[in-house]
Every structure is written in structure tokens, then in C-alpha cells.
Design a protein around this nucleic acid. Structure first.
Lengths: 249, 249
DNA sequence: CGCATGCTTGATTTGGCTCAACGCATGTGG
DNA sequence: CCACATGCGTTGAGCCAAATCAAGCATGCG
């Protein structure tokens, strides 16, 4: 695995980390940060690279940095399902388990902020703040996974696409603490195939539904990877769930 | 909500609780158990009853007792997806949130072992053992949800049915600490409709696939709710994933 | 230029859904 | 005891959304 020493030197300390307030270290203070800092190292990956293979040994856990990656699961015959999206500040790895359960692939260049697993597990035991933040994050992920179950089990192809766009829009908006409204632009850091793997569709169906949404004016395309949504509410309607997405989280 | 005082009196203290070693209180000792005991009360529900509605206020969390229940999520037009199965010793509710996110329906008679939420949250903060056990359980649920994503997104109707049977068989076997093998019997505490809601199918398709599996000798039916599997490996093959289910968990 | 990669589009097939009838228990009331 | 209703499950016929198979197009790159 790449471990770029020069890179480490250029990384910022936790104290001024821009995503700290949402990450696992959200509620930490001076001493705890120092402790974390000591077990920290960085890894860098390029777009398309596999970060971990399912079944691999993993002796670190990590906080997710810029950019995006996907967790995937496979059947032997090759059918693939993405089971999670890793977005900035998300947590990777599982304390108490040394085998990766899923394959993680970077979809854009990224830097991973890693903590050696053993010391981190120890820290977790005698530091309730970190432990409770991790619990909270895990519960959020569980909720997200359950929403995804509804999508995979009961939504049409068209609704699935719209839902994915809504989710990405909300995620982007949350970073700048605003609610998506009116005319918005969404970055789509995924190939059609990755979208298909996420939505439980084929890439052809994804392509067709994108074209259909464009034809009907629900979205506009600027290149393949940038989507303009003239009316966010219209998109939400197409996604099937009429909810407003709850409070800004 | 029903709160049967007479019943409470007949409940056992945590110390001799038969499912304690798998539940949230797994690693607790004397004092902690006493504390838990103090915030504990029981509720009883009958088969078919709704335990909580999505959006309801919930001022308790609970440990799951005998029997089975399902968490469901709905779209406004009525499409329903089950997003979790609650089995003995599972945990219900989310510390730090007072709204239920899902509707919980009992599929058989059950007794719920509830803890008042506020004191429980407090206990969580100053008791790392309980907190870490809860984290572990949540991570397990997340893994289960992700396996379910693969099932919903990529498996055929036949594979879905077989997978459900495999899961139920493994759960039953785990209770008696054995691995399912050879000829086994599975209790199916679910209507065809509940199965459909779980698998993202219609009840007709569930029925047809059950008939097909029977016709081909993969399963035998004893009444509607009891399934005999002559060869467990055959069933696993039909389920699509060839894995052996990992270590006895 | 030639070739690879990612995407679109079209023609065809098919698995699972919809709608509808029917079977079979169990319960209820006359 | 029979007539009838009700709740679950099964089965069949037809249809449609999405998968599959198959070109073809745009972009980028050695």
C-alpha cells in the first residue's frame, strides 16, 4: 500500500482540520486530539484505485477525506452491489474486526487520514466522547442503509435515479449548511456503471433514464458528470418520497 | 399503550435473563445490572400489533424478547419495505433521538424489556461497557443491512426466497450454538405478505417461488409456516451466495 | 491513425407485477 | 349442522419495465 512520507509532513494537525466537526473526532478536546494525532498517518489514492479488498487484513481505521468512494459487495458470478458511499468525514473500518468486509474503491483522488487500529480501539475504551460519536455515526449509517433498502426494494428505475441525485444534492448542500432549493448544480463523481451498481440497475437503464429525465426537462446535462436541476422540488417529486428530508443534518 | 402491571411482577431480574449474554447488557456486572434493573419495565404485545408507528414519540429503548417483529418503511402510495427483523436479544430504539424512524410490528406475541430513555442515555455516557456493546450490535446490524442491499439489488426472486430461509435457519441454529447442516426444519413466523415486504417482491411471486422450490425438492412444506429442508447446502446454492456464513456468530 | 473507454440508443426477451379467480381453513350466527 | 363470511394462500393469463444483446458514437491517448 502506498504510504507517502513526504505527504504526511504537509498534512494539517487535527486541530485545524476542516472536517473535524463532522468526523469521529467531533467532540474531542486538546488532550484527546493529541492522542489521536500520535496514532495518525496518511495514505493517498488515485481515482479508480482500490483502497481495500473484501477479506483483506486491515490494521487501521480511517477518517475519510475529500472526495468519494464506494463500498461494494459481490456475488461469485460477478453481480455487484454498492452498499455504501463514503463521503468526506465518513469513517472507514470497524473497531474490533481485522478483516475488511467490503471492497472499497476510490472514485476520485483522495487522502485518507488513518489511525492505527489497536491504539484507536484502546482510545475508544477509555474515551466516551469518541465512542459515543462513533456510535452516533454508525446509527446514521444504519439509517441511510435502511433508506437504501426501501429504494432498492420498491422504487422504479426512474425514482431510483432521481433519489440518487437528491441525495447527492443534499450532501453537497449540507457541506455549506444550506438546504437545496430552486436551481442547483450537482457534481456526479460516478460513472454510469457505478451508478448502476449503487441503484441495482444496469448501466443501460441508468443511461436511458438519465436521457428521459433530460428530455422531460427535469435535469440538464453539462458534460457527463455535471447535472443541473432547474427545480429541486420537481426532482424530489420524481424521487417518490415526498418528505422534505428532515432538519438540516 | 398496554402496560401490564401483573406481568411485570412475574418477569425475571436481569441476572437470570436467558438472553442476557447476547443482549446490550452482555458484558455488565453486578452494579451496572442493578442500575439497569431500576430503569426497566415491561410491555407486552400480541401478534399483529403495532409496537411503534414511524414518527411516534418514544421515550424508551428496549431489548427484544422472545419472538419476532419487523421494522417497516413506506412510500406515500403504500409501497412497503421491511428494513429490519427484530429477533430475540435485539435492540430497539435509538439513544439520542426521540422520534421512531420506522414502524414496528409484532409478528408473534412478545414481551418487551424497556428502559426509560433518559436514564439509559446517561448510563451510556458513563458506562463504556454498555456503550461498546451497543456499538458492536449496531455495527452488526449495519452489516446485516448491507447484505440485504445485495439481496434486494441483485438477486432473483428465487434466490431471495432461498436467502431468507438460509438466514432464518442460521438464526435458529445460532440460538442453540450449532451450524445448520443436512436435513433441517425452519419455522417461518411470517405471512407471505410479510415475506414479500422483506424481499421486495409481491406476495404472489413469493407464493409461486415457494411452490417452485417445493416442486423441485429443495424444500418441503409442513403447513404454511414450517419448512423442511432436506439438504441445507442445496438451499445455500439456490441462495446465490456460496459463502459458508463465516464463523458461528 | 487505431484502439480503448465510457456512454447512448435500438431491438428483443423475460422475470416479476397486476388483476382476477379459486381453494381451504377457521369462525360465526341462525 | 349448515350457510356464509373472512383471512390466507395458490394459480393462471396477460402485460410491462428493465435486462440482455448488439450496434454505434464521442473522447482521449499512445
Amino acid at each position: 500500500m502506498p504510504h507517502d512520507a513526504a505527504l504526511c509532513a504537509t498534512q494539517q494537525p487535527c486541530e485545524i482540520c476542516p472536517i473535524r466537526y463532522r468526523a469521529v473526532c467531533a467532540h474531542c478536546e486538546g488532550d484527546e486530539l493529541t492522542e489521536l494525532e500520535e496514532m495518525k498517518f496518511y495514505r493517498r489514492y488515485e481515482a479508480g484505485q482500490v483502497v481495500v479488498w473484501a477479506g483483506d487484513r486491515m490494521d487501521f481505521v480511517a477518517r475519510w477525506s475529500p472526495a468519494l468512494a464506494g463500498l461494494t459487495q459481490q456475488l461469485e458470478d460477478g453481480r455487484t452491489q454498492m452498499v455504501g458511499l463514503l463521503l468526506p468525514s465518513d469513517f472507514l473500518g470497524r473497531p474490533g474486526r481485522d478483516m475488511a468486509a467490503y471492497t472499497v474503491t476510490a472514485t476520485s483522488d483522495l487522502v485518507l487520514c488513518c489511525f492505527r487500529r489497536k491504539p484507536f480501539e484502546k482510545l475508544l475504551i477509555d474515551n466516551p466522547r469518541i465512542a459515543s460519536r462513533l456510535l452516533e455515526m454508525t446509527l446514521d449509517e444504519l439509517d441511510a442503509a435502511r433508506d437504501w433498502l426501501l429504494l432498492l426494494g420498491r422504487k422504479s428505475a426512474r425514482e431510483k435515479i432521481a433519489s440518487l441525485l437528491v441525495i447527492l444534492a443534499r450532501r453537497e448542500a449540507a457541506l455549506i449548511k444550506r438546504r437545496p432549493e430552486g436551481r442547483i448544480t450537482i457534481e456526479l463523481p460516478l460513472t454510469r456503471e457505478a451508478m448502476a451498481d449503487y441503484l441495482g440497475l444496469t448501466l443501460e437503464t441508468v443511461s436511458r433514464q438519465m436521457s428521459a429525465l433530460k428530455r422531460e426537462g427535469v435535469i440538464e446535462l453539462d458534460g457527463k458528470r455535471r447535472v443541473i436541476v432547474p427545480s429541486f422540488v420537481r426532482l424530489v417529486t420524481e424521487s417518490g418520497d415526498d418528505s422534505d428530508g428532515g432538519p438540516l443534518s
